[in-house]
């Protein structure tokens, strides 16, 4: 049986305060959501951001070394860097990776709202780890445990908390890097770069077409949803809601299916022969190679520090 290094007994008052916070926080969120939905009449903007034009290229004229970087080298380098970040195991190197990602976002002049949307999207998954893992992680040699009164069956493992924090740091670093990687050139250019890097051409064609039609079906779904609300539909947890949603989805799929033939015929009549022509040419400059080298050396340094810091993280 492994023995913990230190057991800290938490005072009942602190425990009560923490439990109170734990109950109050979700309640507050629920109330806020209810209040907001009643105030704005559920006018939630769920449309994906328009990626056909890269931000900072045409509209804002704010350029950075990330915009000028050859897209093939940029995606290959940052993709590799993401894998390096995902494989880190030490607190120090994870924090360093987060700092690097934050500075890359600042350099690329990414609008704050897009970054926030990404972080909100992963927050639920990460919160689950932060709440569950400290209570459920196994006992490790020489670790610190917090014992709450009333909750003696559920010791709070500092090791579990650390594991969860590391996951959060890594997930946020990679999520932040997505904006410099794909947000600094238009989606078409990024996908062309991916194709030149070896992703099968049919997959790239499908992604481009799907992306184009998402906006269309989003509008169609919004319109259908609006007319459903007009007829008095309000979703509840019951069979009727599920049946109506099923009909709604069925209509959406039938409309998309009926469109497939027209779309394909229209593409054929405009000379589609299985590939979209590429007009933009990119040439790799010395500056591109220097930038790539810099990122790769940073990644290698992170890996080396991580390997030498293994013992530090408990």
């Amino acid at each position: 049986m492994m023995q913990p290094d230190k057991i800290i007994l938490v005072s009942p008052w602190v425990t009560c305060a923490l439990i109170g916070l734990f109950i109050a926080w979700p309640l507050y969120l629920l109330c806020k959501k209810k209040w907001r939905s009643s105030a704005s009449n559920n006018n939630r903007n769920t449309a994906p951001p328009d990626w056909s034009i890269a931000p900072g290229t045409a509209a804002e004229k704010k350029q950075s070394f990330l915009h000028a970087w050859d897209p093939r080298l940029k995606i290959a380098t940052l993709f590799t860097f993401c894998f390096v970040v995902a494989s880190l195991d030490a607190l120090g190197t994870c924090l360093a990776a987060l700092l690097i990602s934050i500075s890359a976002v600042l350099y690329s002049h990414t609008p704050w709202i897009r970054v926030r949307k990404r972080l909100v999207a992963i927050s639920g998954f990460l919160a689950m780890f932060l709440v569950i893992m400290p209570f459920t992680s196994p006992m490790v040699e020489d670790e610190t445990i917090l014992l709450f009164p009333f909750l003696s069956a559920l010791p709070f493992h500092m090791y579990g908390l650390l594991t969860a924090v590391l996951i959060c740091l890594k997930a946020c670093s990679v999520a932040l890097l997505m904006e410099p990687m794909f947000g600094t050139s238009s989606l078409t250019v990024s996908l062309q770069a991916l194709q030149q890097l070896g992703v099968p051409a049919p997959i790239i064609q499908m992604i481009l077409l799907t992306h184009r039609f998402i906006y269309l079906f989003q509008q169609e779904a919004n319109r259908m949803h609006r007319s459903m609300k007009l007829r008095g539909f309000s979703p509840k947890t019951d069979i009727a809601t599920m049946r109506i949603t099923g009909n709604f989805l069925g209509m959406l799929f039938i409309r998309s299916y009926e469109r497939t033939e027209h779309v394909y015929e229209a593409m054929l009549s405009r000379g589609y022969n299985g590939v979209f022509p590429v007009y933009t040419q990119h040439r790799i400059s010395v500056k591109d190679i220097v930038t790539t080298g810099g990122w790769l050396i940073t990644g290698l340094a992170l890996l080396l520090f991580d390997a030498s810091a293994q013992a530090l993280w408990v």
Partner: peptide, 30 residues
């Protein structure tokens, strides 16, 4: 990719877009 006729890929892409939109729909559960 080997199992599917390349001519059908654009059609599958269009239907994929409708699945994408469908997966964004939230149903209440309690």
């Amino acid at each position: 990719l080997r199992k599917i006729n390349p001519e059908d890929l654009p059609k599958i892409a269009v239907v994929t877009a409708s699945f994408f939109v469908a997966s964004l729909i939230h149903l209440p559960l309690g």
